[in-house]
Amino acid sequence: MSVTVQTGVFDAGAALSAFTQALPDAGGVVSFTGIARMDNGKTQMLELEAYLGFTEPWIETLIEEARTRFSLSGVRVIHRVGSILPGEAIVFVATAAAHRRQAFEGADFLMDHLKSRAPFWKKEHGPDGARWIEPRQADYQDLTRWTRDQTPK
């Protein structure tokens, strides 16, 4: 179970290989990679800020909740901060479990919470300037799928 918050670009394929190789007994591994969108030229750069020392423990608590709720045998989260260009990976989530359903649901649960509640602040830089982004209504709506909500506040 581990989380890394980093400024450097990462290779999601390599992260997935490393994760899978470390878990030879897993029945299934699911991964998701979130990529910065260009949005038809409206986004030239994303600036993502975290509160180091606060953001990672928040994600660790979330991982622990996912681990117990979905009986996961392994979880890996990598999250970029700093300047992110279109096409670059922002977030990587991988889950391992004995059975596929748990691995799929665990990854889905983690992403829904990372996208809406996690302690990050996101600024979009485009041709018309920069603006701070708040979660979309759809992101909050996604959270209601997990009604037994015990995420860190």
């Binding site: 606060f54 977030v91 996208k115 996690a118 990050f120 602040w121």
Partner: peptide, 10 residues
Amino acid sequence: IAFLPPMSGG
């Protein structure tokens, strides 16, 4: 002390 505006998620 950190002042944290509404979090945007990642």
